[in-house]
Design a binder for these strands. Sequence first.
DNA 1: AATAGCATTCAGTTATAGAGAACAAAGACC
DNA 2: GGTCTTTGTTCTCTATAACTGAATGCTATT
Lengths: 253, 253
Amino acid sequence: MADPKYPVRTVGRTFEILEIIQELDGAGVSEIAARVDIGKSAVHNHLTTLENYEYVDKDGDEYHIGLSFLGLGAYARNRTPIYDTAQSQVDELADETGELVNLLVEKNGKGIYLYQSKGENAVELDTHEGKRVRLHCTGLGKAILAFRPDETVDEIIADQGLPELTPQTITDRDAFDAELEEIRDQRYAVDREERLNGLRCIAAPITDDSDRSIAAISVACPVHRVDDDRFYEALPEAVLGAANVIELEYNYS
Amino acid sequence: MADPKYPVRTVGRTFEILEIIQELDGAGVSEIAARVDIGKSAVHNHLTTLENYEYVDKDGDEYHIGLSFLGLGAYARNRTPIYDTAQSQVDELADETGELVNLLVEKNGKGIYLYQSKGENAVELDTHEGKRVRLHCTGLGKAILAFRPDETVDEIIADQGLPELTPQTITDRDAFDAELEEIRDQRYAVDREERLNGLRCIAAPITDDSDRSIAAISVACPVHRVDDDRFYEALPEAVLGAANVIELEYNYS
DNA sequence: AATAGCATTCAGTTATAGAGAACAAAGACC
DNA sequence: GGTCTTTGTTCTCTATAACTGAATGCTATT
């Protein structure tokens, strides 16, 4: 986490290139070279090497992220202890509610979507497995932070602040602390369009036997389709139920 | 695919290191250095750099594959056209049969498991999403090859041969061609413990509108639990049904 | 307390990643 | 259809940064 004493620059450049390809949804040599601090020929050398190792696919003059990453990614996910027990519950909750259900874990102060299951009426979103998000502006992130020591929360906020993503984002530190307190009380978190306009979530933490959060599970739905009754009554109950089952299985088996 | 004219060695080494970490399920500096052709200190530099980019996690003195790969992997999978339409059918087939259901695509002459869904009684296997397999020894691979031009099959076999993985693996070229012919006839493939002792599969190709295979879907089950009746009657029907739905959705919408 | 087995640091050396120009190929535009 | 532009690819040279190997520091074990 601290800057490496003797970094290998090429490693960094490799991943910069890969992230650019992902961001542009496929890109050519010149396009990439324009965004990374090395020349065309060097980028070309990188890409042909990556292609050789099958980590990128070449399609005409466009390079794309290769499926080989799925091997590493799925492996990393399977190694995450909560994944195995949570997966089936996430699926079930998606079936039951018909909405989009997410599972998030924290890593280095950010959230990573570990798994996602689409119910019948699930919203189409910018979230996908592996995506990183800020913790303060999602129900999932708030649920996780509410069940972590104060110092951890302090550190993360000191590091990242409380940037405003929508008019509803909580940007005031005191208000945020009050919010966490409320979440601890009711054991679930509500996201009222705090990350994305038009999107609300109900999220519950998944805690270990000393009540520290390991992950969080949420149902996300569009404001205009799901009315307040269902959102504030039925959904919290469903989410809490699922979180509970996961906790039981995780902690006592 | 052809060897790069001007390879970037460091890129190759980076992925070699990552693959070693995966294979060893976490490893320390010395352990990795022993398997890769560079010294301890160089490996150390690589690892601290990778950690800095959050592509590996350091846990004590062990390095592990980071969840960041899930972002790239899930992205690559989502880009694969068949995934979106096939996923729900795979889930459904797993529910219906209670067994392990797999979705495979071909890439550079190898198979890659794109998605996997576990039914209630699913066998625990060495397969995971992103894993690569030889095509000739699995039902999925044979189903894909059966619906590709002869020249493609020739090339792949010329390149990789028909290595024997179990006593049941088809290793004779003529026998293999006859097998493909039969698969084309009945539109599904049977794997009779050809890759793994004790494991049988029924697999069906998913083809495009010109009858070329795009992917294949299979049900895998242990020999000793599933009797011949169910294996040769009920399962093929279920698998063919699912493949059919996927094809319809994929080709006509 | 002593040793062994690690990770980490560091200075020196050498291999190699990258620059930059030239060439090739493919479209776009008139 | 030919010219101009853009982008990919090849190639040589050089500065740089990746690597070696030895030294140091840390932790655990007996």
